[in-house]
Design a protein around this nucleic acid. Structure first.
Length: 458
RNA sequence: GUGGUCGUAGCUCAGCUGGUUAGAGCAUCAGAUUGUGGUUCUGAGGGUCGCGGGUUCGAAUCCCGUCUUCCACCCCA
């Protein structure tokens, strides 16, 4: 054999087994999205670089996959432009692979602003690409399942999204905890300690609290230019304990006098009131150290983690007040969240949460005893399929042993056999693969009998 | 992007400080069983030891490069 073929770093092939499980996740998510009134859209895998760059911060820009122009793109490049990566890059690459679904969505909203019926509730399930170093649960090509509402700044949208999250993970049988914070509160805190311009640095640092500990967080804060006094002021927030209401009351005392902080607190109170009335089943915590989220979030921030398995967040999102602004359409507020399908898969696989029906494909197989016998079976295949059963016939008159092995490995629950003797008597032998039990049924009652035995398995 | 780590049959791995023709289990295929699988028995096929170079009489084993895997940082789904 020649050199074995391979796929690029951080990408994966999905075999039928994996696809069945992935489909289960996608269809569950899709179903819930629709229940809340979201409608699907799709956007191209590639966008103009001008659409993508500058939206994800410097780090994000570095992780963009760029697509080389077609043809002899170097011939048009003048010597001076070849001197730096920056200028050369602009000349030879004008397109890039999408990095997430939110920015293409913002582009979509601006582009079709006159045709869209606001508030626009859309969902989008597509792969995205990041030139990151792969690790476990971190791929260069992965799927995001985004739901967003744009054109409404009502907090009920946030609440409904949390409820939707609850619904999805309840259906997938994954135990999760949702953490909520508000960017305005973080901004209020930054102002409170006298460093409003250091908002990003502060949030990035305190976000690491449970990972690296308080000493390292404080060290990083100092390193970012915060005075000892500023770090000192922040401590009560980092160690804030108690119920959500208690935390909010404490916050009120600290930053209630700061306009933006006060606004954030009011929003949080309203959101948690909605959530209380919605009777959310999963735990929902106010976590003031939650800061992750891209630079464009301006209000609520969400993050969802599985509680039974260590894994990065499997779902995250937030409120962005001006994402469409960069595309020339100001004052459109949106809120959305993104489900990481690949990580959800890893969690479910890890905890063995996929139900049998998620991985079952064919339900009934007709074994092949030869040309005449196959012909005898064909009308029944048609009839069963018309009734919605997933049915196949083994294409070759191979040894029965081989055919049953195929059936077994494909986890098909029922094998139907008809050889010379059954044909002569106008009958079929129906075999339950799991128990090995076999019964003989008349041809007229075959469809009915099969329907009965599969009733519990659908 | 920085630092580290791994790579031997389809899969999981052995292979001592370099030394005959590179092994095992599982999986695959064939037969025992020409109409009965998931258990058993017998046998077979399958590897340029990730790839490229170097050191050596001799390299899976040592060195360099490269690709891939996983890990920490960065960032994130």
């Amino acid at each position: 054999m020649a050199q074995k073929p391979a796929i690029p770093k951080g990408t994966r092939d999905f075999d039928p087994d994996v696809m069945a499980r992935r489909d289960y996740i996608f269809s569950t998510i899709k179903e819930v999205f629709k229940l809340y009134g979201f409608e699907p859209i799709e956007t191209p895998a590639m966008e103009n670089l001008s659409t993508l760059t500058g939206k994800y911060g410097d780090e994000g820009d570095k992780l963009l996959f760029r697509i080389l122009n077609s043809g002899d793109f170097l011939s048009d490049v003048k010597e001076p432009d070849k001197q730096s990566f920056e200028t050369l890059g602009q000349k030879i690459s004008e397109k890039g692979l999408r990095y997430d679904l939110t920015v293409p969505f913002a582009r979509f909203v601006v582009q079709y602003r006159n045709e869209i019926n606001f508030p626009f509730k859309r969902y989008q399930i597509q792969p995205v690409w990041r030139a990151d170093r792969p690790q476990k649960g971190r791929y260069r090509e992965f799927y995001q399942c985004d739901v967003d509402v744009v054109g409404s700044d009502a907090l009920i949208n946030e609440a409904e999204l949390v409820q939707l999250v609850d619904d999805v993970f309840k259906r997938l049988n994954i135990n999760v905890v949702t953490k909520i914070n508000n960017r305005k509160v973080l901004a209020g805190l930054a102002e409170y300690i006298g460093k409003p311009e250091a908002l990003i640095d502060i949030t990035v640092a305190i976000d690491k609290l449970d990972k690296i500990g308080i000493d390292q967080v404080n060290a990083e804060l100092s390193e970012k230019g915060l005075s000892d006094k500023a770090v000192e002021l922040l401590q009560p927030v980092l160690f804030m304990e108690g119920s959500t209401t208690e935390k909010l009351d404490m916050l009120e005392k600290l930053i209630g006098h700061i306009a933006i902080g006060s606004k954030g607190i009011t929003e949080l109170r309203q959101l948690f009131t909605y959530l209380y009335n919605m009777k959310i089943a999963m735990p929902v915590e106010l976590d003031l150290t939650l800061a992750r989220g891209l630079n464009y979030y301006t209000g609520a921030i969400f993050e969802v983690k599985a509680t039974d398995v260590p894994m990065g967040s499997i779902c995250g999102g937030g409120r962005y007040d001006n994402l469409t602004g960069v595309f020339g359409m100001p004052d459109v507020s949106g809120v959305g969240i993104s489900f990481g399908a690949d990580r959800i898969y890893d969690v479910m696989q890890n905890l063995e949460l996929f139900p049998d029906k998620a991985i079952q494909s064919t339900q009934i197989i007709f074994l092949n005893f030869g040309e005449k016998e196959m012909t005898y079976c064909l009308p029944f295949l048609k009839e069963l399929r018309a009734k919605g059963f997933r049915v196949e016939i083994f294409p070759d008159a191979a040894k029965i042993k081989k055919q049953l092995r195929y059936t077994d490995q494909k986890r098909i629950p029922i094998a139907v056999m008809a050889g010379e003797s059954e044909m002569a008597a106008n009958q079929f032998t129906v075999k339950q693969m799991q128990s090995g039990e076999q019964i003989t049924v008349d041809a007229e009652t075959l469809v009915e009998k099969l329907g009965e035995s599969l009733k519990d398995r659908l």
